[in-house]
Design a protein around this nucleic acid. Structure first.
Lengths: 248, 248
DNA sequence: TCGCGCGCTTGATCTGCGTCAATGTCAGGG
DNA sequence: CCCTGACATTGACGCAGATCAAGCGCGCGA
């Protein structure tokens, strides 16, 4: 759905992720903003497909709120999620005209979009955009490669722990670590989506979550709300020696 | 080993991959060339480790000849290859000071290196470099994500077929397709390296290669030389619906 | 020329996870 | 209130691929 107004809580350039964390490290978004009809907001419902693999890409943009996922599917239906897009993450590929993966709204979602052609022209005349995009793309590449280790070499239990650690870490950074060291968050994914991300079946995901719960690594409230009493323990379960953050 | 001379066959900027396929889409390498001591060549022997994960990165560069691989290793020794670097591929990450993965020379290798600091300064003043690097990084990201599907969802047989298809395709493009449609190449990897790339054990790699041979999908001359009578058949075995090339 | 070691193959057995199937839980709608 | 459908859990069973182990082929240095 195309939004006539900027979504509530997002005024002008100020809170727009393009400005803060994505393209516009030095406020090129202001300039984009001024170009009539280039920038617009759009909302999607959970489960809605935003882009089909192979489609023409009409826009690039970034996630304002909600979660989207990049997935690849084989003819026989096997699917693998290849990227999890969180608020401020960039979608699309300057210089390529057709999409390489499906993009699906995993939760209700608001995107901030730019028409592709003018954006590309903008990129050529405004060096900071390319430099900023390069940094973001390198971050995504690192994340993808870290995930390759998870997919290729970790056990089901370690996979689950890795996923929980990533989501937990991100949430801890967002909401500040709690005094008692506990980390708490809602899982934004169904068991099936987790399975697609981890290269498992949903049954295995469910079993391993139950096992982690039984062993006291996590606690559950309902199906989706996770409490991690000891983040270090969780990361140990994940077989994780990395610091997880981007150290630079 | 630091080379005093440019390696045979590589004169000035002309054949340097930085010029042709990597950073220097519009000949910035000429400028770099002029900066004393910034650019140099270096050779490594097969098996030699070029960079340890966590090390300070002193340089960025690109592969001139040979094959390098990016690998991640867990404390217990499980390792996953997260990238295969072929001639013209870029190594290193502007803006980050420590390496995130091990880089290992899989074959004898020659690299073309730039000292990192001056290269970064160069990038700020020469927009085309960042734009070129962005395109390359996006390509690598696509490759990494395609590989996530292989790691997460494909069977051992499909994994092997996928790897052979990638190498074969690349080689076919390089040496031009043969009239009879056969594709022929040498495997640049040991069975163990293939296993690390595919998230398998070397025994499984060996067995599946034998199986593909028995079924007539490939032929072998010695251990390493592969003949693919029918590339389409191989790609079918790989479960591959993608075009493989970058369509743009 | 021989022996040594490395890369590779092949066999036997084990096991983690996929598969199939039944059941549980909960929110929303009539 | 119950019915329905989406999501999740749990159990029984089988198989692809890991693990353990033995042996092969070939290049290389003594």
């Amino acid at each position: 759905m195309l939004l006539k107004e900027k979504p509530a809580g997002f005024h002008d350039c100020e809170e727009c992720p393009i400005r803060h964390r994505a393209v516009c490290a030095r406020c090129e978004a202001d300039e984009l903003e001024m170009l009539e009809g280039i920038k617009y907001y759009r909302s999607y419902e959970a489960g809605q497909r935003i882009i089909w693999s192979g489609d023409r890409m009409e826009f690039v943009g970034s996630v304002v709120s909600g979660i989207a996922s990049l997935t690849q599917t084989m003819e026989d239906g096997r699917t693998q999620m290849v990227g999890l897009l969180l608020p401020s993450d960039f979608v699309g590929r300057p210089g390529r005209s057709t999409a390489a993966y499906d993009v699906v709204a995993t939760t209700d979602l608001v995107m901030c979009c730019f028409r592709k052609k003018p954006f590309e022209q903008m990129m050529e005349t405004t060096p900071h955009i390319a430099q900023r995009l390069l940094q973001m793309t390198l971050d995504e590449l690192d994340a993808a490669r870290e995930w390759m280790l998870v997919l290729g070499r970790k056990t089901a239990r370690e996979k689950i722990a890795s996923l929980l650690a990533i989501i937990g870490r991100r949430d801890a950074a967002l909401h500040m670590a709690r005094a008692d060291g506990m980390v708490t968050f809602d899982l934004p994914l169904t068991r099936e989506a987790m399975a697609d991300y981890l290269g498992l079946t949903l049954e295995t995901v469910s079993r391993q979550i139950s096992a982690l719960k039984k062993d006291g690594v996590i606690q559950l409230e309902g199906k989706r709300h996770v409490i991690v009493p000891d983040m270090d323990r969780l990361m140990e379960e994940a077989g994780d020696d990395s610091d997880g953050g981007l150290l630079n």
